[in-house]
Computed example of a mutant assay.
Amino acid sequence: MGNSTFNGRFTTENTEDMVVFIIGMRINKPLAVHKWGPVFMAMPGMIRELYMNKEEVGFLSMESYFGLRTTAMIQYWRSADDLLAYARNDKHLKAWMNFNKKTRNNNGVGIYHETYQVKGSEYESVFVNMPHYGLGKAMNHMSVSEKKDSARERLAAKEAN
C-alpha cells in the first residue's frame, strides 16, 4: 500500500491488547560525531531485522522522528512478552550489546526507552486523508462508522461488542 492516501475518515479496531515502545537517542554534543555517529548507525540494522521477522517476533509497525538533536521511534508490539523475548533473542542481544557498549561512558549521546502496555478498548485513533500511519499501520485499518464517530465511541467500542 506504500504511501497511498486513504480519503475520508478511518480508525482502527481496538479489541486487541498491545504494547507501545518508544525508543530514541539524544545528541548531547553535536560536534562529537565520532561519539554519537556509531550509536546512530547501529539502529538501522536492528530496525531491518524487526521488519524481516515481524510475524515471528510480534512486531507490528513503527514510525520514526528525527529532530535537530533527538530521535524517537514509536513501535507497536503484539505483547510485552514478545517485546521482552525479542530483547533477549541471540541475534538482537548481540546488536544491543554492541549498541550499549557504544553508549556507555559516552557523554556525547544519550539513549532512552519507554514501554506502555495498553489493553484493548483503552486506545483509539482517527486518520483523515492519511496513508497507513501509526496505529493505522499496526492494527486493522477501517472506515469510521456511525457507531465509532467520536473518540468516546471508539474507546467504548469493545464494551459495546
Rank of each mutant, 00 (worst) to 15 (best):
P131G: 04
E114C: 05
V39W: 02
A157P: 01
G136I: 08
W77I: 12
P131T: 07
K35Q: 15
K119T: 12
N89V: 07
G58Y: 04
R88G: 12
K94R: 15
W36D: 02
N14L: 03
M52R: 14
F66T: 12
Y76N: 04
R104N: 13
R9L: 12
G24N: 08
T103G: 02
D149K: 14
L93N: 11
T11P: 02
V126R: 07
K29F: 00
V20Q: 08
A32Q: 09
G8E: 08
G108C: 09
A157M: 13
N14E: 01
N14P: 03
Y112N: 06
M52H: 10
K29D: 08
P38F: 05
A87V: 12
H132T: 02
L31A: 13
K148E: 15
T5W: 05
V118G: 02
P30H: 04
F99G: 00
K147S: 14
D17V: 04
S61F: 14
I23M: 07
M52L: 15
M73N: 14
E56D: 13
I23H: 01
L155N: 05
F6A: 02
F6V: 01
R88T: 11
I27A: 03
H113F: 14
A156C: 00
G136R: 05
I111M: 06
A72D: 00
N107K: 10
Y86Q: 13
S145T: 15
V19G: 03
L68W: 00
K137R: 15
W36L: 01
G134P: 06
K119F: 05
N100P: 00
S125C: 07
E63G: 06
E16Y: 01
M142C: 06
N100F: 11
F21C: 08
V144M: 09
V128A: 04
S64G: 13
I74F: 01
V33D: 00
E124T: 07
S64L: 10
S143D: 09
F6Q: 03
T12D: 03
A80Y: 10
V19Y: 00
P44N: 05
N98K: 15
T103E: 03
Y65C: 03
H132K: 15
E146Q: 13
N53I: 09
M25L: 14
G58T: 09
W77F: 07
W96R: 14
A42Y: 04
V33H: 03
M25Y: 02
N105H: 14
